[in-house]
Design a binder for these strands. Sequence first.
DNA 1: GAGCACTGC
Length: 721
Amino acid sequence: MEGSQCLPILQHKATLTKLVKDNVFLVVTGETGSGKTTQLPQYLYEAGLWKGGIIGITQPRRVAAITVAQRVSQEMHFTLGKEVGYQVRFDDCTSQATVVKYMTDGCLLREILADPGLSQYSVVILDEAHERSLNTDILLGLLKKTLLQADKGSKDGSVRLRVVVMSATLETDKLSTFLGHCPVFTIPGRTFPVTSRFGNAIGPKEVDSSRYVNEVVRVALEVHVSEVAGDILVFLTGQSEIEKACDMLYEKAESIDYRYDVQDQTVEGLLILPLYGSMPTDQQRQIFQAPPSGIRKCVVATNIAATSLTINGIKYIVDSGFVKQLNHNSRVGMDILEVVPISKSEAQQRAGRAGRTSAGKCFRIYSNEFWEKCMLDYTVPEIQRASLTSVVLTLKCLGVHDVIRFPYLDHPEERLLLEALKQLYQFDAIDRRGQVTQLGRLIMEFPLHPGLTRALLKAAAYGCEDILLPLAAMLSVENIFIRPGTAKQKEADKKQRNMAAQSGGMNDFATLLSVFQWCKASDSPSAWCKENWIHWRALKSAFSIETQLREILLRLQQVKDFPVETFAGNKSELFRRCLCTGYFTNVARRSIGKIFSTMDGHGTAVHVHPSSSLFDQEAELDWVIFHDMMVTSRVYLRTVCPIRYDWVKDLLPKLHEVDAYELSNIAREEVNEEELAKLESKEAKRQKDTAKKLEKRNDETSVGDARARYLQRKLERQHKL
DNA sequence: GAGCACTGC
């Protein structure tokens, strides 16, 4: 490990310290390896800034916050958790003595909710701002808003809180302009040159996955037989592609005569290693081991290798040019995971992975034309492509009433904000004036999706929170069911079907709950998971989340007046009724055959996913609720359970009443009372009409869903062909 | 009849 004595930042110590002291906002840029993350906080500590409050540094990722804090505490000869500490979810390693604090951006956002002025801090450093994480973007806007206001108000000219934004050298002018034309300081980087070359396999017209998988395999092997020693990193988009590419590499590498010389260096063989997020952690660790001498390592990875994990010894990059990206489509109210071309800045980031220890080479399989025509300069920031429901509630809770005119570094489409407002209104988290309700404040306390929190709170009122707490935890972690490629797939599927049947069947929510309970009750939870094809890592985090949710609920029950309700029916019904209060936005009704139609106003034609315990049982179903929709070959509902129309009857009109008045008005500062009254009376009428219509629809035996019929005809035609 | 990248509270 290199000492901090030779870092390029060192010679700028005095200038940097002075700049921070003299300015409310400062932008610091520098490539990886400049030492800004570890050194700047130390300089500010030495300059005595900690006397005015904590020096806080945010990171977009947990591991980064923890490892950097460890390193800095060592460099400063402090015990971790004393003067230097870190805080991430489930792990608070700070104390009264902590003055240099590394944390995730999400943690700081939570702190702002409790203390909007961040009175404990003297400096806040937002690191990795170029990554444009949702939380960092919100923090940027909030700090700009509060500090510029405070600045105007303070008469003595003294500055209490300073903000430093650290970013890679991209878009620094934009940041500076955003922060009132604040100074920008650039630290020279210390990376090695990487030469990039384009290929010709992917042009503007090709987007076929088998094409780029074949091509990266071909190029990786070409690198292997023609380039000097050094490891290869291949970027693809997901698990199945990676497994396919690895299989092809094994096969083809075997047919190569291993002993050949490349410019007088003997490279004997190729060690092929897959790398993706859902891989077990111990398997991931293998990636970091140096290969045996004379063997070249080839890591085939997802974007996880672009920022989250750094592999030493990489000299060659093979870039497919694609990434899987989760985009929220506000037109249909759906999240869609799609393969898209990476941006130019992302391509440079990938290439940079080859220049960390020596000069490197990057082989892009796409053409120059593809680069010019298909790739954006920068990746669209998360705030412009994510669902903003939680973000808007956060802002409202912080007193930002006008979320449309909030200072965003990049403004999200108004439609996205309106959709979020609409959802919050549907959940009764905000009222028709756009003010946060009491329920809204409760919802904010939980690190969960608002609908899920609403269901949990309902359950707490009925005294059955013991069912909803584990379920909420299970629904907030990644997919827990393992589905191996080919060989053992049937065995895994069978286990999972058995588990669904044992938990009562016909209810995917109940299956999740059972898995949680069975695993918790077993003597060896990790062994139980292995036996039942369950991701132990995911279940472990569900356990932690459940504990955290339980603590929050208990705390709130002690201070707030919780409503208490009673219910006479059976337990399964109560469970599903509670779910309905949070999932009434996710209701679908079977229209014809196996086709369902969503009740959210879009009327999307959807199918039950084959992994569901309700699959092939559609004939018995009428109304269902679901946790999420997924778009692949069809639009699928996943995690589904049957409900009765009665349970959602009173809730459904709420889905339509938002059309009754201009939502954009409730987002803005001024509310015209007269207008509002007019709209409200109109709305009451519409609400009645909608309720009637729904009632009528429910009575009809054959549903006149034109869209579903059209799809059915289309499918029939396809089958004939 | 199955196609989930990566983060975070």
